[in-house]
Amino acid sequence: MIRVGTRGSALALAQTQTIADSIAARTGEEIEIVRVVTEGDTSRASLSSLGGTGVFASALRDALLAEECDVVVHSLKDLPTAPHPGLEIGAVPKRADARDALCARDGLTLETLPEGARVGTGSPRRVAQLRKARPDLEVVDIRGNIDTRLARAQGPDADLDAVVLAAAGLGRLGRLESATELLELGPWPTAPGQGALAIEVREGARGALRTALKGLDHFSTRLAVEAERTVLARLEAGCAAPVAATAFLDDGLIFLSARVYAVDGSEQLTASHAQYVADSEHPAIEIAERAADELLANGARDIAPLGD
């Protein structure tokens, strides 16, 4: 039996079940889903006050190291950039839609929201982007699962005009019809790793599980998210830093655009680079370091809380 660890939210269970089914199909082994409660699931405080991404990952990693499960599934954007002793990312499956989705009342879009509309998000990056695009909006900090957040904008007791969520999460739950606008990555880049999953195992995992993970790993997705996450690490960007990065591969080239925002959305800096994958042993890392160094040279630390 292979035990797959996951958070207990509907989204986490849905995406974990997909991975579990793939592992089962590749190994012929019976699969057990092991639910793990994380601090991020039990606390209602803002993510930035709790310490950001690690609040979802740490309990899963503890369970993996304690051999309570054999593999864990993370939303990659929830995974800290620093490697964890004793663990490794065994696979990064093909990425889903990396865009953000506006889910508004009455079919409204970002442009057609009325002046002073109340828009909910728990992400400092989305806060900065909303304030830059529409300084007139009232941005409200929210927490909760996807259904809870959607209900605040589209339910019978809605108290907001819109919420911003990840399109990938909506899609995995069959709720993409709730989106009234998908925000394109060019003008609205998203969190490093958004839309991708990370399958983490103990170092040295062997046998059928290792073979299955090799089959699940998607080369271009892994390379793209490695570039995005290296930008985050190079900038020393904490959970409160409004940082976005988008990378993709096309015709042998890796393209990366990274952006840093002022918290209030008043300023932004962008660095965009491309290079041939075959020209380097570590193309994702090299392109990310160039982008991050350009942002730092142009004053990224002056406009955003980096290195905190």
Score class of each variant (00 low, 15 high):
M1E: 05
I2R: 00
I2E: 11
G5L: 06
G8L: 00
S9L: 00
S9C: 02
A10Q: 00
A10E: 00
L11A: 03
L11C: 00
A12M: 00
A14I: 00
A20G: 04
D21M: 03
S22M: 08
I23D: 15
A25N: 04
R26G: 14
T27P: 13
G28W: 04
G28A: 01
E29G: 07
E30A: 13
I31L: 01
I31F: 06
R35G: 03
E39S: 07
G40I: 04
R44L: 15
S46R: 06
S46L: 06
G51Y: 02
G52T: 11
A57S: 14
A59H: 06
R61Q: 13
R61S: 05
E67S: 14
E68L: 05
V71A: 10
V72D: 09
H74K: 12
K77F: 07
P80K: 06
G86H: 01
G86Y: 06
I89R: 03
A91W: 04
V92E: 11
C103R: 01
G107W: 02
T112F: 02
T112G: 09
E115S: 13
E115K: 09
T121Y: 02
S123F: 10
R126F: 09
A128Q: 09
L130G: 08
A133M: 05
D136C: 06
V139F: 00
V140Q: 11
G144Q: 14
D147K: 03
A151I: 01
R152W: 10
Q154K: 07
G155E: 09
P156Q: 15
D157Y: 03
D157W: 01
A162G: 11
V163S: 11
V164F: 09
A166C: 07
A166E: 12
G171M: 05
G171V: 02
R172G: 10
L173F: 04
L176A: 13
S178Q: 14
S178D: 15
E181D: 08
E184C: 04
L185Y: 03
L185Q: 12
W188Y: 02
P189W: 01
A191K: 13
G193Y: 03
G195T: 03
I199R: 01
I199C: 10
E200D: 07
A205N: 12
R206S: 15
G207R: 01
L209H: 10
L209T: 12
L209G: 14
A212V: 08
G215W: 04
S220T: 14
T221Y: 10
R222I: 03
R222A: 15
A224G: 15
V225D: 15
A227L: 04
E228M: 06
R229F: 07
R229S: 07
R229L: 07
T230L: 13
A233K: 07
R234A: 14
L235C: 14
E236Q: 13
A237V: 02
A241I: 00
F248W: 15
G252C: 04
G252P: 10
L253N: 12
L256S: 10
L256Y: 06
R259A: 08
V263G: 14
E267K: 13
L269M: 04
L269E: 14
T270C: 11
H273Q: 12
Q275D: 11
A278L: 12
H282A: 11
P283R: 05
A284E: 10
E286M: 01
E286I: 00
E289A: 02
E289Y: 03
E289F: 00
R290V: 00
E294F: 12
E294A: 13
G299Q: 06
I303H: 13
A304D: 10
P305C: 03
G307T: 05
G307A: 01
